[in-house]
Design a protein around this nucleic acid. Structure first.
Lengths: 252, 252
DNA sequence: CGAGTAGTTGACGATTGTCAAGATGGGTGG
DNA sequence: CCACCCATCTTGACAATCGTCAACTACTCG
């Protein structure tokens, strides 16, 4: 049922400075001793293959997971048996934060390709953070950052045009790849068109058509999952409405 | 520029058990002594009138705010000068959580009616939580809950039908009012149709038409801001697709 | 009481979803 | 190793929901 061997980020170990754990353990005055204590509770788990679940909705929660290579999709099963994609996560990103609330996962996480994660048992992290104020501070920030992400998504889905959504999506990946030391203009998307559409609130066909149109307009070159951005500036204008009043939004 | 005297929740002091501070200070094994220490840092600020800002985007962050009466809208100014409404907040809810990340507010908060809030200076809260593990735990949970809220909103905006969105919106308020000891079926919405539309990603006219249609279908009675839900069950079915396959969502 | 804002309603159009058919490619089994 | 098969993707035609524009009504507030 799970097909392995689909790779693209496999074997790429995140540089610590790019790992979101960096903001959680290294900088901001965490003493080397404390870093070591943190390292002490982190467990590296076996790699997941494409289609493997890292956790499922309503699983009991015990650990935060940090992606170290590969990519993960989080989603919630809908009433209708369908699903809502919540996010695509790259190396250095932490998943499972929503489960702290009552120790049950509220979404499922599945590997989009061969993926490695680190486990951080939350209870241990919690008690460790009690004795390391700077660690506590970093956890607060990490959670707050995730909340800030909500803002972006609401704005994305509130702003209507399909074109803007896909452009935003592509630029988001461009930026995130860049931050991780990969090319900002040449990358593989590990998720399907279906998943992109679901995430962006669009039909598959719309996503497909947009890719085609973007290519016709020489904004990018696309061949299945392989995307090459040819004109990031224009994509950026598309999103930030530089081009006159094209992006009107109901003002109040 | 600010018009005062629009009331509906004015002078309603939240019962502590309904205040979201409850999960932050009282239960889950927080000692009475510790509660007192927490109370010691909380400040009750002057009431805000309709249109007053509690904070603005890019303001320096110092305190979390807990609404004790009234209601607040959070929003981000868009590039275009327009805005994206992020949420409507009722007594007991905490705002400002997104600002922890880098001590700057990423959204603005404005009072929709006469509103009172408590200030919780975050640095003091943080150091207090270092010495009170159960307080630290509650803060983690509070932040996690907010992240969980993201899930709901993504699902709401991902599910396309305007009707479903408004129904979800109404049920959300129904539930939240109920939790606070008010009627679940008879309440005042303190925000404008514009703001509802912006929040739900719909045009004002669509919101207006839906209210009219819902009334025609005897789902509710509405007169401007005053809403009476007449058939919560049917609204619920509308949202949770009980009625056959009407609510299809792209499955993957 | 008057003016301006908020809300409602109607007509129309466009973006985007739906349905359907065809193309492409990867994985599996013979 | 090749070929078939199935899932994914693409493309087209059409329909419909929802946004836009516009006019009118009704509050609210000064």
């Amino acid at each position: 049922m799970t097909n392995r061997k689909v790779v693209s980020f496999e074997n790429i170990k995140v540089a610590c400075k790019d790992c979101s754990l960096a903001t959680l353990c290294l900088p901001m005055g965490l003493e080397p001793d404390d870093v070591e204590r943190l390292d002490g509770i982190v467990k590296r788990s076996r790699p997941f293959h494409r289609g493997d679940h890292v956790f499922r909705e309503s699983d009991k929660f015990h650990s935060l997971r940090v992606i170290t290579s590969g990519s993960i999709k989080t989603y919630t099963p809908n009433e209708n048996g369908s699903e809502q994609v919540l996010g695509f996560h790259l190396p250095g990103e932490v998943i499972g934060l929503d489960a702290i609330q009552n120790y049950h996962h509220t979404c499922s996480a599945v590997a989009l390709e061969t993926t490695a994660v680190c486990d951080i048992p939350f209870e241990q992290l919690e008690s460790l953070s009690s004795s390391i104020p700077s660690l506590q501070h970093q956890i607060y920030r990490l959670l707050s950052r995730e909340i800030g992400h909500e803002t972006e998504m609401l704005t994305l889905l509130g702003k209507k045009s399909a074109e803007e959504r896909l452009a935003t999506f592509l630029l988001s990946f461009s930026e995130r790849f860049k931050k991780r030391g990969f090319s900002a203009t040449d990358f593989f998307l590990s998720m399907s068109r279906h998943e992109i559409g679901n995430y962006l609130g669009l039909a598959v066909e719309t996503v497909s058509r947009l890719f085609t149109r973007f290519q016709d307009e020489e904004l990018l070159h696309v061949e299945r999952k392989h995307v090459q951005l040819l004109d990031i500036d224009r994509l950026y204008e598309m999103v930030h409405g530089n081009n006159s009043e094209k992006t009107q939004q109901s003002r109040i």
